[in-house]
């Protein structure tokens, strides 16, 4: 009965049954299915590759779904990076390395340049919009049009946030990139409707059903490379709104604020001006996993841009936020 290594053995009943799949295997299988479907029915497609852990997972899943047993890989998606112009250097380095390793076509959309060229008209880097939401939404929609892709694959997860929890795996965007939460297509039995009409495109979320914990388990199991700032390291930081922010030469420091050196890591990566770090000694993925199991706060709380407010996310997503 021992068919499979690392799995529970099937019950000794008759007729014999196979051991059930583990959570990660079931989630992985679902993601493969989504990626194969996207490849077959929605070419050309790109992965929205922020170089964060979720998009690194998606890129790894795509690699695993398409690498042949002899080791060949024709990576079927472009990697699209929306560059806020304020990335951590570690993230940019990781972006380049990943594209090179996969042989993927890397497309960078640089927000400040797009603003200078008039492609993005929303104000960027305004106080109260630290995530550059308006500008990024325009940039993402512009990328879908200019690359003429039929699908943008993202690393969004339903456990991140209450509105995201309702979104479909194949989620349609109209020609202006807008999402209509009340006109979503049902996806029974994982039968996806991939119909897109002229001007529309699909956002595809292969790891919709993964939790933060599942992502870290998968990173540990598969040995997936990540930007080094996900792991404990020492850096200059300043305490702001309950989180540690990285200090760079161009970081404005208020008179009452104190720059300190701490051992920290981040839980999500974004703009280097707003990404919050947590104090942590966790270094290999298994230690991060252990830390997450003990954590009492959800990962988005590390971002200054939103207090996890569900409704804000809905308004943003309606406009085209991934």
């Amino acid at each position: 009965m021992n068919h499979v290594l690392g799995h529970r053995i099937g019950k000794e009943t008759s007729p014999p049954t196979l051991p059930s799949l583990s959570t990660l295997d079931r989630l992985e299988a679902e993601a493969f299915d989504i990626l194969w479907t996207t490849r077959a029915e929605l070419p050309p497609a790109g992965i929205m590759f922020s170089a964060g852990k979720d998009s690194a997972c998606v890129a790894h899943l795509a690699e695993k779904a398409f690498r042949t047993s002899s080791g060949g890989l024709e990576f079927p998606f472009s990697l699209i990076h929306y560059d806020s112009g304020a990335n951590f250097p570690e993230v940019l380095q990781f972006r380049e390395e990943t594209a090179r390793r996969l042989g993927a076509d890397l497309k960078v959309f640089h927000l400040p340049s797009a603003a200078a060229e008039g492609i993005v008209t929303a104000p960027i880097n305004t106080p109260g919009d630290p995530g550059n939401v308006g500008g990024l939404v325009q940039l993402i929609n512009y990328s879908a049009q200019s690359l003429d892709v039929r699908a943008l694959i993202g690393g969004g997860r339903r456990d991140e946030e209450l509105v995201r929890a309702k979104e479909r795996i194949f989620s349609l965007r109209d020609s202006a990139g807008r999402w209509d939460p009340h006109a979503q297509r049902p996806e029974p039995w994982a039968l996806y409707n991939t119909t897109v009409r002229a001007g529309e495109h699909m956002r595809v979320f292969p790891i919709s059903n993964w939790t933060e914990r599942n992502v870290w388990e998968y990173i540990a199991r598969e040995n997936i490379a990540l930007p080094s700032i996900y792991y404990a390291h020492e850096r200059a930081v300043v305490q702001r709104n309950g989180a540690w922010l990285a200090v760079f030469p161009d970081t404005p420091i208020a008179p009452h604020e104190r720059i300190e050196r701490r051992v920290v890591r981040c839980r999500t990566v974004g703009d280097r001006h707003t990404t919050g770090f947590i104090e942590s000694e966790a270094s290999p993925p298994t230690e991060v996993l252990d830390e997450i199991l003990r954590a009492r706060t959800s990962e988005r709380s590390g971002r200054v841009e939103d207090g996890g407010s569900g409704t804000d996310m809905e308004s943003r997503k309606r406009l085209g936020w991934p």
Binding site: R8, L21, S22, T23, L24, R213, R221, L289, L293
Partner: peptide, 14 residues
Amino acid sequence: PQPSLSEASFGREL
């Protein structure tokens, strides 16, 4: 009680 890493084994079921 707080879960330990051993509980985070990869063999859990969904």
